[in-house]
């Protein structure tokens, strides 16, 4: 762990009954970099994401987070109000199913503005302006600011979730299969959007995906998990092009080429 790591986990262990979900996992993340966690079902990648983001408590181990002032916090020792506030401000969480994260009965503008209102903003005009600005940044037509998410396509819903998450300028975003539920034709534009937003806004991201191509496109570094164990970690293109571990070699060689 160096002086500028944004997130650092050490010795994470978690069992679900007899099943090991995380076995002595360590992770570091620096500002502005994207880390992909890949693995097949049951690998523990989503569990790791949930432990890192404080949503799930490990049996053992610690997750350190460095706040904008440079101070370190033990994520699982934080009082619940602080963690919840963190999730609405400096952190973001993009879920695989945007319908679970959005308020489907609230307009697009209301969805994007909610975090601002939660932080105490009380000027309707300003909130709506910021919402419109963010809709543009995620390439949703600004004229749809008052429309209901019910009327949006899957790709638009995911972009709306991203806007809703980024409105408070988080420095760290957790993403759980962000393109997972989408049609292939829609995934490409969304991947490119995520890539450019992350680069432009210097956001650090932890991205869980089972799709190696997504990891290659978005991530600087990659962590490969198998049954709760990190079997290989390193530079994304190096791990995918020159895999050292047997399981990584198996994963890489199994990918279908269209």
């Amino acid at each position: 762990m160096t002086d500028d790591t944004l997130l650092s986990a050490r010795g994470l262990n978690l069992r679900f009954g007899p099943v090991p979900a995380l076995v002595d996992v360590a992770v570091d993340l620096w500002p502005g970099e994207v880390l992909a966690i890949v693995g097949e079902s049951g690998s523990g990648k989503t569990t790791l994401l949930n432990v890192l983001s404080g949503r799930l408590r490990p049996d053992d181990g610690v997750v350190w987070y460095r706040d904008p002032a440079g101070k370190l916090h033990d994520v699982h020792a934080m009082p619940a109000p602080k963690l919840r506030a963190l999730h609405r401000s400096d952190w973001g969480f993009v879920q695989q199913d945007p319908r679970a994260a959005l308020r489907m009965g609230v307009s697009a503008g209301g969805n994007v503005g909610e975090r601002l209102m939660a932080q105490g903003l009380r000027h309707y005009g300003n909130i709506r302006e910021q919402a419109i600005d963010w809709l543009r940044q995620v390439e949703i037509d600004a004229a749809r600011v008052d429309d209901m998410p019910r009327t949006f396509s899957g790709g638009m819903l995911q972009r709306l979730q991203i806007a809703r998450t980024l409105v408070t300028h988080p420095r760290l975003v957790f993403m759980d299969e962000p393109t997972g539920g989408l049609d292939v034709s829609v995934q490409a534009r969304l991947l490119d959007l995520i890539r450019s937003l992350v680069a432009r806004l210097n956001i650090a991201a932890v991205l869980v995906t089972h799709d190696l191509a997504v990891a290659r496109l978005l991530a600087h570094r990659i962590v490969v998990m198998q049954r709760g164990v990190v079997v290989e970690a390193g530079l994304t293109d190096q791990v995918l092009d020159d895999p050292q571990h047997a399981y990584t070699q198996l994963l890489v060689s199994s990918v279908l080429q269209a």
Binding site: D241, D242, Q244
Partner: peptide, 9 residues
């Protein structure tokens, strides 16, 4: 070439 670039270890 790829080793020089760090693409291979």
């Amino acid at each position: 070439l790829r080793s020089l670039y760090g693409n291979y270890r």
